[in-house]
Design a protein around this nucleic acid. Structure first.
Lengths: 189, 189
DNA sequence: ACGTAGGTATACCGACCGTTCTACCTACCG
DNA sequence: CGGTAGGTAGAACGGTCGGTATACCTACGT
């Protein structure tokens, strides 16, 4: 079963759009099949269950993030501070302009409990981002890289969610200010 | 229809628990009825539709928050700075220890789109909290109270969500540090 | 004594949920 | 030529969804 068939890709694209825009539980298989122009049988051949589809949806989102972050870090291999600064500005980029509904991992975690694949993916992905931040902070000689990495995650999380809920455009500047303060080691407990 | 009947209260308590712990879409009317020990007819007499029940659930949550905030502000009527500081520590209080699944408004917003009651409630409630913060900041002579109020909302949002997703106990201290920095006007764009 | 408010029990509605079935088609490859 | 991978079409499964209908009970206030 080729993982790159046209039908499979159409299913994935449709699921990504609907899951993100309307929520996972709000979107049934019937609708995905219909909008993807595919038979139910075809969908279930590629994804044995809806949970598999959900898992692939989130994994693809995570992979996209990882590619973007890894690319940026590699681009500034000799300047970790610049990498950290630019990691913040990704939030105001065009890519994120389309993400009006906030973070897919946070949103999906709100829809499921404890051991569901969605929550597992969220935990894993957030831990990965945190570890990247920690390493960069270590490289620039931050006094408390682990703590600061968690702080960065915290303000980023707040920024993404607040933007999705409050629609306040001025927030970007406030977020950037907080982000840079943490990098400079001005925020400590 | 008395808004304080025993059955009605049991329905409300059950809905509150299940909606918060497992998500709104994840919990059907059948289950609420069953666990509340009430007939479906009874439920639909008090709440004409599930959306009505959702709305009441969120309204009660909002009312609880407002009572708590108003009480705290009134208790420090002559010391707005103290009120602001203590508004942060509510997050680490016992009340919030039970809120392992994060903020009910943020979570419910993730489950619905655009014009749904859940999203309306979230917007309204967050706007109210923001206005309270802004007024307190104004009273302590903060140079940019509106912007700072949004910043406080942002870090609080990040703290609540991050705690629910990452289960990192050290986050509280980091959050408090950031909160106080904003109050002192050290974070500006 | 009687109506009404608030409740019970049970059965049902159409719609949609995730999932599976059977049957046939077609393009490509060894 | 034949097999296999990937697709089509359409019907159906049992279960749950939000919501309704009918009928009966009981406490209480006037």
């Amino acid at each position: 079963m080729s993982p790159r068939s046209a039908a499979r890709q159409r299913i994935l694209d449709t699921a990504d759009r609907l899951f993100y825009d309307e929520g996972i539980r709000a979107v049934g298989i019937h609708r995905i099949v219909e909008e993807a122009g595919v038979t139910r049988v075809t969908l279930y051949r590629h994804f044995p269950s809806k949970d598999d589809l959900i898992s692939t949806y989130l994994e693809n989102r995570a992979q996209y993030d990882r590619d973007q972050v890894n690319g940026l870090v590699a681009r500034h291999a000799d300047n970790p501070r610049q990498a950290l600064v630019e990691l913040a500005t990704v939030l105001t980029d065009d890519d994120f302009a389309a993400m009006q509904r906030g973070c897919p991992f946070i949103n999906s975690s709100a829809e499921f409990t404890g051991a569901h694949v969605a929550r597992e993916h969220s935990r894993t992905h957030r831990a990965w981002v945190t570890s990247v931040l920690e390493e960069l902070l270590t490289r620039i000689g931050h006094p408390a890289p682990r703590s600061a990495a968690h702080q960065l995650m915290m303000v980023r999380t707040g920024a993404v969610v607040s933007r999705a809920l409050d629609r306040n455009p001025e927030l970007s500047a406030d977020f950037l200010a907080g982000w840079n303060l943490i990098i400079d080691g001005s925020v400590s407990a």
